[in-house]
């Protein structure tokens, strides 16, 4: 098990996080933005579990469960906002939501 160096896991987590962050910036569809945010959160989970494994503290794995729960609650609210937006506008696009500008 410990044959795989920790570096691999942390690099993967950092990569996943970066992909998610870029997705949040680049994507125009709110649903895809949410997927990118989920990717970021899962990168965090991976990072926590990696450190938990290599530091021999079990706390980190408990944190991962906690984060999954919180993320689910967060996305429920976000999807509700998107559904409400879709109902009044009949399209979901962040460029369409640009009533307020400088």
């Amino acid at each position: 098990m410990t044959d795989v160096p920790m570096f691999y896991y942390t690099t993967l987590a950092a990569l996943l996080f970066s992909i998610g962050a870029v997705g949040v910036i680049v994507k125009r569809n709110p649903i895809l933005i949410f997927m990118s945010i989920e990717l970021m959160l899962n990168a965090v989970n991976l990072s926590f579990i990696t450190y938990s494994r290599y530091l021999h503290f079990l706390e980190g794995q408990v944190y991962a469960f906690l984060l999954i729960t919180v993320a689910a609650a967060e996305v429920a609210v976000g999807l509700a906002i998107i559904v409400a937006l879709f109902r009044s506008k009949r399209e979901v696009d962040v460029d369409a939501a640009s009533l307020m500008k400088e």
Binding site: Y51, G78, I81, S88
Partner: peptide
């Protein structure tokens, strides 16, 4: 529409920045 738009912007940036904070915490 204005309220929803403000809420959506608040939500997206908020969720992304919380994820960033969590990565820092990890």
């Amino acid at each position: 529409l204005k309220s929803l738009e403000g809420g959506l912007k608040y939500f997206i940036t908020g969720a992304a920045s919380s994820a960033a904070m969590l990565f820092g915490i990890s």
